[in-house]
């Protein structure tokens, strides 16, 4: 086989400039300089601010309990910036309160998923052997199950509310977190510094807590951001089908469901919540990818 003499040299780069995505993580500069992290981060902070702080600064109409008198107002009506629904609820405030629920659910589910999932995953990896195999098989079963059906069944069983939705979505996310953290822990446990720690006399739980966990933490956080997009989508989907946040409670999912019924006459009712939902998920995914590119996945 012909081997080029200049083996050490890297091959000529493809023509054209490289896109942002191809640049290796520039560790020298602060993370705020990476546009793919800072832009979505700012966007998400703005969204959180609008949903949680804005209603306290400026009085906004109630998202529920609107009267038929103010029903079906068009976009740009005085006092109702984005108009009202058929039953007279302000769309803007429904978006804000729906967003609040989405963000709350997202944080709660990813928080539970991160803690419980990494606990399961790292424990499984540290146990090794049969226990590890059995634990991972059980998680496989839950992951193999269609997520939507799982959430619907649990919500039906417990009764629909924000809290039950959080637990149902956590059941979906915990095995995924467990699998990711176990995969990470398996690569870490093969590292020489784990052998060194064992030789130093550190107990296994201490190695798991002080060596394994810190070294997979950044990739777990990255995954939590990427997975947050999935949670927001799942929540919206389940609410769209009427199994999630019970109407008239505001949720982007059931707003879209309502909008879908009048899409030929008032498409704005469908488009506005759809766009808000889409932008949120895009921001989460872009942020997640930016984080992954910068802090890397596990080696």
């Amino acid at each position: 086989m012909a081997v080029l003499p200049s083996e050490g040299e890297s091959p000529a780069p493809a023509r054209g400039a490289l896109v942002l995505a191809d640049l290796p993580a520039r560790r020298g500069r602060g993370w705020l300089h990476s546009l793919d992290i800072s832009i979505p981060a700012v966007l998400l902070i703005a969204l959180a601010f609008t949903c949680f702080v804005w209603p306290y600064l400026y009085k906004i109409p109630s998202p529920v309990g609107g009267g038929i008198l103010t029903g079906s107002l068009p976009v740009g009506s005085p006092g109702h910036l984005l108009g009202t629904t058929v039953v007279g609820n302000d769309i803007m405030s429904r978006l804000i309160y729906g967003g609040r629920i989405s963000i709350e659910i997202m944080f709660a589910v990813q928080g539970i998923g991160l803690v419980v999932g990494s606990l399961i995953g790292v424990t499984a990896a540290m146990m090794q052997g049969v226990a590890e195999t059995i634990a991972m098989r059980i998680l496989d079963v839950i992951i193999a199950f269609p997520a939507i059906i799982l959430v619907v069944v649990i919500v039906l069983g417990l009764g629909a509310s924000e809290a039950t939705l959080i637990w149902a979505l956590a059941v979906v996310m915990i095995p995924i977190f467990a699998r990711v953290s176990r995969a990470g822990a398996v690569t870490i446990r093969e590292q020489t510094y784990i052998v060194a720690a064992e030789l130093s006399g550190s107990k296994r739980w201490r190695i798991a807590l002080r060596h394994v966990l810190p070294n997979i933490l950044m990739s777990l956080l990255t995954f939590a951001v990427l997975g947050a997009g999935i949670v927001v989508i799942l929540e919206a989907t389940v609410s769209f089908f009427g199994y999630g946040i019970p109407p008239p409670g505001p949720s982007w999912g059931n707003m879209i469901a309502v909008g879908a019924q009048t899409m030929s006459t008032r498409p704005v009712l469908l488009l506005v919540p759809s766009v808000v939902l889409l932008v949120t998920v895009i921001a989460l995914n872009t942020l997640g990818e930016g984080m992954r590119r910068r802090w890397g996945t596990l080696r």
Partner: peptide, 25 residues
Amino acid sequence: FQDPYSSLDPKWRVKDIVAEPLVAY
């Protein structure tokens, strides 16, 4: 070990690394 970098936890500070066996025992 052969590769000093891979035998030291990249997240730990030098003084904690050296103290690890002291803490463990």
